[in-house]
Amino acid sequence: MRVFISTVVLFIVWVILTQSFDPQELFTGLIVAAVVSLISPAIASDKPKKWFQPKRYVYLIIYLFYFIWEMIKSNIDVAKRVVNPKLPINPGIVKVKTKLKTNAAKLALANSITLTPGTLTVDIHDEWFYIHWIDVSNCDDVNRSCQEIVEGFEKYLEVIFE
């Protein structure tokens, strides 16, 4: 089952990249996908059932739009700081607690944080994220966890990956 899912995903990527429905190419792609998923168990999903819950895909699509919007906002924000002659930055490394458990979810969250408003993940240790923030003043107290960085993403990622 686990091998089957990674075979299907790899095969879809193959079809998109070759953009051809020639039987020879499809057959080669199927064999390559099957061999790759057989010899690399590390890329297989640990809980195959997750792949058959449509709710996850709906949230993934909503999340993609939300994420792209956040990314555009963050880029305009950083661009404004860069072109401002005074260079208004107020940087620091804060820590944030996350409620996400699985590694895939943490990876997605770390990537999302890195690509959005002035934040850059420096390290992850258990449920703590260490985040370099270009303007710490948005967080009223740096000694507690600055939850506002992750809140927006967590509610989607929880459904998609957990």
């Binding site: 620091g92 820590k95 740096v142």
Partner: peptide, 13 residues
């Protein structure tokens, strides 16, 4: 870090 940085939680931990 830049000398005007406010906080460095990572170094503390």
């Amino acid at each position: 870090l830049y000398e005007k940085s406010v906080v460095d939680k990572y170094a503390e931990d």
